[in-house]
Amino acid sequence: MTISADERDALYKVIYSRRDVRGQFLADPVPEEVLRRVLDAAHHAPSVGFMQPWDFVVVRDFEVRKQIKAGFETAHAEAAAMFEGAKREQYRSFKLEGILEAPVGVCVTCDRTRSGEVVIGRTANPEMDLYSSVCAVQNLWLAARAENLGVGWVSIIHHDSVRQALGIPEHIVPVAWLCIGYVSFFHDTPELEQAGWLPRLALEELVHQEQW
């Protein structure tokens, strides 16, 4: 299958316009067929040994999302204490999640037992199954952007908080809590870059030829 120039350009547009959305979510519901397409894109991510270790827990219930929010608040306070001085105050000023504002939350997990103990490609590097689930997150994120949906990854939360709120078995690893919904606008550049937290690094500084 050959990709046309227009299709190539559309893919790059999606990649470069993807944002981690925190505060622009609208209350508009996400249609089932749209969410299905986005989840199907996630399900077509590459996975080590074709083990497909992911599951997707779709959460619309406000009370459940309030439990996730409480878990975020606990981890958020812990994180703030790790920064010092002006950085701590700047960190506290950031809007870092949209758990209650977004109409849908999706938890992406990893079942590390799904294909047994020995998995093609996971023998030397056992963490490859976790990376596979992260690939599913990226697929979901890009597909959502192509659907004009915003996505925010809430990483400031302990796995046990997510497990308890969603009834996830102990052997399943929660990889990502994603806030999903239509938004009022997408930022032109990442918010942390705008805030001066960190700059985007130059690609030339990160590419090595032949050896490090």
Rank of each mutant, 00 (worst) to 15 (best):
V38T: 07
S115D: 04
Y91H: 06
I157Q: 03
F25W: 01
L130E: 07
C107A: 15
I120Q: 13
V175I: 15
Q24A: 10
A136L: 09
P31Y: 10
E33F: 13
V108M: 10
D129T: 14
T2C: 08
E117C: 04
T2L: 14
A165P: 03
Y12P: 01
A202Q: 15
L140H: 03
E97P: 01
F62C: 08
D160T: 11
Q194V: 01
P46N: 08
D20G: 04
Q52T: 10
D28V: 06
R114W: 05
R88G: 03
D61M: 11
E204F: 06
V38S: 01
L100V: 11
H187K: 09
H159T: 10
I172Q: 00
P199M: 08
S47E: 03
G167S: 14
G181W: 00
Q194M: 11
D20P: 01
S132L: 08
V207L: 15
S133F: 10
R88V: 04
A77P: 01
H158M: 09
E170T: 12
F186G: 05
I3Q: 11
Q209V: 15
V14L: 07
G71W: 02
W153V: 07
E33K: 14
E33T: 14
L11I: 13
V14I: 14
E32H: 12
V108W: 01
Q24I: 00
E127Y: 15
I68M: 14
E191T: 07
V134H: 08
A70N: 10
E63T: 12
V134L: 13
D28Q: 12
K95T: 13
G121P: 06
W212H: 10
E191F: 02
V137P: 03
Q52C: 08
A136Y: 03
E33P: 03
D129V: 12
A5T: 14
V151S: 01
I172S: 01
S133M: 11
E101D: 12
G196I: 06
V183F: 03
Q211S: 14
L26N: 06
F72A: 04
K66Q: 15
V118W: 09
S115Q: 07
W54S: 04
R122D: 12
P103T: 10
T123S: 13
E84P: 00
A195P: 00
V38H: 02
R22Y: 01
P169K: 07
D111H: 07
S132I: 07
A79Y: 06
V14W: 01
F185K: 14
G105C: 15
G71V: 03
A195C: 05
Y91C: 04
R122N: 15
K69S: 14
G121Q: 07
W141G: 00
C107S: 05
L100K: 04
I120V: 15
V162Y: 02
L166I: 11
C179N: 13
V151I: 09
A102P: 02
V118M: 09
N148L: 10
Y182V: 05
F56E: 03
F56S: 05
T123C: 08
H187C: 03
E127I: 15
A86V: 11
S155R: 04
E33Q: 14
D28L: 09
P46A: 11
Q138P: 02
G49E: 05
W212I: 11
V108N: 02
L26I: 05
F83S: 05
F186N: 04
G105Q: 08
E127A: 15
R8N: 09
D9M: 10
D129N: 10
E205N: 15
S17T: 15
S184T: 12
V58Q: 10
A86W: 06
C107W: 01
V118R: 12
A195D: 08
A75R: 06
R122L: 09
